[in-house]
Design a protein around this nucleic acid. Structure first.
Lengths: 234, 234
DNA sequence: CCAAAAGTGTTAGGCTTACACCCATGC
DNA sequence: GCATGGGTGTAAGCCTAACACTTTTGG
């Protein structure tokens, strides 16, 4: 701090994380939520968040919050929006910058989850959230839906090996609508993002479905050029 | 301020405005820039900005900055990004939230412009900007290009009456590429956003080109449903 | 053998793109 | 009458979207 600037007009700055996870079992997009452990709003459902510390970058702060909650590092995380209304937080003037993260549902550290009390909640039936957190979620979800069209970020939400059925279910969960199976498979396979494995998943059907893995090299190629993945409406 | 929170870890928060204007004469998309009037970086080219005051919303702060510079109110303005790296500003730890605004080139208050020394600079040859402002501009420009596909925001940049030639030139300036004239006209006219006027513009050609005006009612309709205006690449 | 899920192609319509000539007017 | 910029239509190809039957296998 070289001290060029005034010291008046400093603000508390927080980060709040919209952490998406996808449950392959119940085909449901979920958010990782916590019960707020400070006043005001103590005990209410809240996005996980924290104040940005001195000497800490805002993005780093979001990573810290995520890591403390899940034990994860290097996950997909993207800034969503800065919320700066004076009265958005009844506890005081706090500017909050939100990030949305995509993590693999099963990757979170169960010990951490127990101590923090974080819980996955379906985006279809979110509890009442504290302050303006619901607005934050809605915006992040809109952004996720846009992002998925441009970048195959959906893969961040799936385990290493997945079937085309899993992938389609994921898209349907994100958009909350049905997708034509043949068109979906045609399109996704034409992108050369996937490698078909020998192995089959046999839990959900007798016939079994081939596992696929996602090819990071081609993925990079794709996202650089900005592909366009438009799902048909049904 | 009800004083629930710690008083440690407060931060200076600034807003910086990426103000786009379009010069119908030289068919050039421009930015309104200022010479920085504080250390460090005094005298260097900079985005217009300012610190968020106590009791002032972040968006309001951006409006204030814009208004002080141009005298304008109620212009199109959208949050771009929050820049929160610890060392982004060598003068101290400042978190900056950027907004991009679209204004009509000729609307700015000439008195204010004289006192602030603000100048329009072509996006094709921007001067060196202070700190990370160039990154801010690049991001805002990318966002503008995306936005224009989804919302006919281009109209914010044109005067009340404009010709189809003007409109096409604007798109070409935003995307920095040629657009097919017939396809452009077909598409834009199919949208029912424009009202053809009797009057002709006769400055740039002998024959003259019809003026159009833009129909706010239909515009609202369009942007709500999220239209898609994809320009062809040439 | 049957239930349950996986897998597979074709066609029609709409949108995108490429492309060239006539029109109106001031000088 | 000619130079300058404004204005117009059509055809080919591509992408989107709708749609139904066969395959596999565990029980």
């Amino acid at each position: 701090m070289t001290g060029y600037y005034q010291i008046e007009g400093r603000h508390l700055v927080a980060v709040d994380c919209i952490i998406f996870g996808y449950d392959i079992r119940d085909k449901d997009l979920k958010l990782l939520l916590v019960k707020r452990n400070m006043d005001p709003g103590r005990g209410e459902w809240s996005l996980p968040g924290g104040f940005v510390k001195e000497g800490e970058g805002v993005f780093e702060a979001a990573c810290r919050v995520l890591n403390q909650l899940t034990g994860l590092q290097n996950v997909y995380m993207e800034q969503s929006f800065a919320y700066g209304d004076v009265n958005r937080d009844p506890g005081g003037r706090v500017i909050s910058i939100t990030y949305f993260a995509l993590i693999k549902y099963l990757d979170i550290d169960p010990v951490k989850q127990k101590t923090t009390g974080a819980q996955w909640r379906s985006i279809k039936e979110l509890p009442i959230l504290v302050f303006d957190h619901r607005k934050m979620v809605d915006r992040a979800l809109r952004q996720l839906r846009e992002k998925v069209k441009i970048k195959p970020v959906g893969f961040e939400l799936l385990p290493e090996k997945f079937t085309l059925v899993h992938l389609q279910d994921l898209y349907e969960a994100i958009y909350q609508r049905k997708v034509d199976r043949r068109n979906f498979r045609k399109k996704i396979q034409s992108m050369n993002l996937l490698e078909k494995l020998e192995e089959k998943e046999k839990e959900t059907s007798k016939r079994g479905a081939f596992y696929y893995r996602f090819l990071p090299a081609n993925y990079e190629e794709f996202t650089r050029q900005g592909f366009y993945f438009n799902l048909d409406v049904s």
